[in-house]
Nucleic acid binder design. Sequence first.
RNA 1: GGCCCUGUCGUCUAGCCCGGUCUAGGACACUUGGUUCUCAUCCAAGAAACACGGGUUCAAAUCCCGUCGGGGCUGCCA
Length: 447
Amino acid sequence: MKVKVRIAPSPTGNLHVGTAQAALYNWLFAKKNKGEFYLRIEDTDKERSTKESEENIIEALTWLDLRWDGPVVHSTDNQARYRELLEKLLNEKKVFYCHHAQGELEAERKSQEMAKLPPRHVCEHKYSERGGESGGIVRLAVNEKSDRVITFEDQVRGRVEFKQNLLGDFSVGRSIDDALYHFAVVVDDIDMEITHVLRGEDHISNTPKHILIYEALGLSIPVFAHLPLILAPDRSKMSKRHGDTAVTVFKKDYLPEALLNFLGAMSYTFSKELLTKEEMIEEFELSKVHKSGAVFNVDKLNWINSQYIRRLTSTEFKSLTGLKIPDSAVPLVTERLEKLSDVKNFDYLWQEPEYEKELLIWKDSRPEDVKNSLEESRKILEKTEDKEKVRKALDELGQKIGNRGLVYWPLRVAVTGKEKSPDPVEVVAALNREDVLKRIDVAINKL
RNA sequence: GGCCCUGUCGUCUAGCCCGGUCUAGGACACUUGGUUCUCAUCCAAGAAACACGGGUUCAAAUCCCGUCGGGGCUGCCA
């Protein structure tokens, strides 16, 4: 049977990095098995679902280049099916109406907790006539007297077991024509013929419920695999309160290949640190996905990103950043970049530098000496544009005045306005001569 | 509280299934030194972990039991 997987984010917020990682693993699994990967927008909660969220999800996945097969599927398009199946189950008395008020249920839950009892709602309506009377929410009738242990072979964790009698009659619909998540996912996965459900570990305790729904419907159960969670530094599930978790906020600083590489290597050990999607597909095996959650380490992401940035060609880099700088200056920048937005630190490549005159002074040298050094450097730069000749002449100047720093430091500040920069000779070569001379004049005048 | 998942350097992890080769390896971050006008790179060195307690064994990070820790779920959200 052909492998079919999906991710089913709810459009109630931006695409979370955790969902992106799940998307990656689903995608890798699909590609590895020559299967298909789908995107389904799980918009069963009409109150909270938004069009913007859906657009964000699509934008993020497109940026990451995790392409899904077929059109985007929406749960809302499947509502008639939910109703049809809910009615079928109602007739079979596998599902019933619960007429308890929300307040009653809350009180029940609270008293159970105090009595150290498992939290569950075993509804007496399922045994009475009331269970057939419409109104109230729809629940799956779960036999609380059964001593059955619901078991599934999780592809990353091995056998996982839950006692059925701890579940209670959980809800499947707000009403007969308004299915809730648990029911909708199962029906959607059935309709899409999903063979493997690879999702976050936060769904592991929902799995027995889903299994019960598959069984009530008399349909075969897919293979499950629960992926570890992405953790915040405090080891709790990474969420908005820990800062940016939306994939789209990474767009301004990171290369999609870098984020993907990072996310992939976070919960899986590949043969090397840096690798392409294709190489990941090659090595990927579901059973080797890690079991425990991993803390999102920005330092590591930055390092991976820096590696990808320095591999960019000049053309790629320029079109990515929109910078108009000579090709020869590109490596100067990419070699020092962890995040794309940090190109602002190299603004002297396209605009006049601004700085305080004190910055021109090398260590404890005198302003007159600095001025003199700049004047000498200016003469050299006037004479030739050849990088090697310039370097040689500046070195000789340094030797003459017995202090290389006194030559290079003021020159760098004059052309870049910064105390940290690439070799001034390289920067000079990247700029045009008139600008360089003008900048040196400005510096001399400051002294 | 109940249920489930999980536990090797600060972080991501290798090793664990099939005990000895582990004085526990790698990567990121960090520290120091070298190169050097500064930064980055590069090179060299360094600090840094088997959660704890029992047991099995000639031998345990690896097997068994218990404890503790962390997380998730516990919704008429997904």
